[in-house]
Amino acid sequence: MRLVALVHLRREPSPARLADLEAVVAGLPDEVSAVRRVHLGKHLPGCVGGGHYTLDALVDGGDANAVLGAPSLRDLVDAGDVVERLDPVAFEPQHVSIAEPAIENCVKRTLFLRVFPETPADVVEEFERVIMAMPDHIDAIRNWACSRTDPTAVPTSWTHVWEQEYADKSGLEVDYMMHPYHWGLVDGWFDPECPQRIVDLVVAHVYCPAAETILGWK
């Protein structure tokens, strides 16, 4: 199971406590045997609604709370002087495409979104189909994953996570954002002025550097 948690920091935490956060996360695989891989990425300028870091974890089995309940992380959050809150989702990998498993020094982008609960199932599936066709049109998307969250594993109001990995930031900021498939076909699902819109206005759009693929973790 994968866990993705957006880390919202307290205002101006000390550098020492930020170092503590990074050390705690880095130590999770040693602390919790079920945690296979972990990554903490500091958000780049331009992110919206998702805090300051993305914490990615790959967990053996279905217990995502193995990460969230790790004593060192719990203590750090409970101390209240560095982390304001975690915004986590968990899910089994569903739709994943890793075209470039050896990608290095890339940018990993994460979008949390909420589809309105009254949306018919076939409309949600069509939305997912349109989203997942983006890599067919936008070559800069090297690796991607589209997932429905599992709120029974970790409670959340987010319904979907749409993740991509790019060779560099311009892949996201230029190729992805400026592509006509994006603004011409995908954006209407998010646009309150479009009748086909099914996605809540509030999203978390974040991206961070990653030394290697996260979506391709095994």
């Binding site: 006509p180 603004w183 011409g184 076909l185 954006d187 209407g188 646009d191 309150p192 002025e193 479009c194 009748p195 086909q196």
Partner: peptide, 19 residues
């Protein structure tokens, strides 16, 4: 703007927006 769409949609049977 949401209020405008909500109110004007009362006059509307269906609509679409294309780019």
């Amino acid at each position: 703007l949401a209020t405008w769409w909500e109110e004007s949609d009362r006059l509307v049977e269906s609509r679409e927006r294309k780019f």
